[in-house]
Design a protein around this nucleic acid. Structure first.
Length: 191
DNA sequence: GTACTGATACTCT
DNA sequence: GAGTATCAGTACT
């Protein structure tokens, strides 16, 4: 069994954490079974110099988790239908987070197919809104740690080839190279 | 195969 | 009251 990544893993610059999270395992226990997958795509948000970050302007009730201690989940509701799953990084008081954008399914594929109403494995979690549905993630996970409980990130010894690209779906700060994904992996959301 | 549009509800101003 | 770190379906070529 792979080791759970410790809280100190997240207590670093979000750009480093986003890169090192690639290839790691996202693990979820539900009352309908175990779900797991490899993280294949992430984006880094944060610092006070990133205009795309929710925490760019000031602290609000919604984004206060980003200012808190590292290793907590930041689940954000967007476009009326979708939850986006982030992990808070950096030291306590510094607002930053890593958005998990895509997962390669490993365990619980049949369960994901039922929830997602598709039989295409590639479409199960190749996008931030899709993966939260496939993993049963909702707002109740906001501010919950990812190093204990029913939603965990585990270590994985592989060393993937990493590509660095522009971020997706945002307006401000869109040209920053803060999106990372595993090279030639078919499960990323966009090439 | 690609391009465009509507759905939808929560949060901050 | 407006904007949003998106997805899926429809309409084309």
């Amino acid at each position: 069994m792979n080791k759970i990544l410790p809280q100190q893993f997240y207590e670093r610059d979000p750009k480093i954490v986003a890169r090192e999270l690639l290839g790691k395992i996202l693990w979820r226990k539900t009352d309908r079974g175990i779900i797991s997958g490899m993280i294949v795509e992430t984006e880094s948000y944060g610092g006070t110099d990133d205009p795309a970050s929710h925490a760019y302007k000031k602290i609000t009730p919604r984004n206060k988790v980003m200012f808190g201690p590292p290793g907590l989940a930041y689940v954000y509701f967007c476009y009326g239908m979708y939850y986006l799953f982030n992990i808070v990084t950096g030291k306590n008081g510094i607002p930053s987070a890593v958005l998990i954008r895509a997962i390669q399914p490993i365990e619980g594929i049949d369960l994901m197919k039922k929830v997602r109403h598709t039989s295409h494995i590639k479409d199960l979690a190749n996008g931030p809104g899709k993966l939260t549905r496939a993993f049963f993630i909702d707002r109740s996970f906001n501010a919950k740690p990812v190093f204990s409980g029913y939603l965990l990130v585990k270590d994985n010894p592989i060393k993937p080839d990493i590509v660095r690209k522009k971020r997706i779906g945002i307006k401000l700060g869109a040209d920053k190279l803060l999106r990372f994904y595993i090279k030639s992996n078919p499960y990323v959301s966009l090439p």
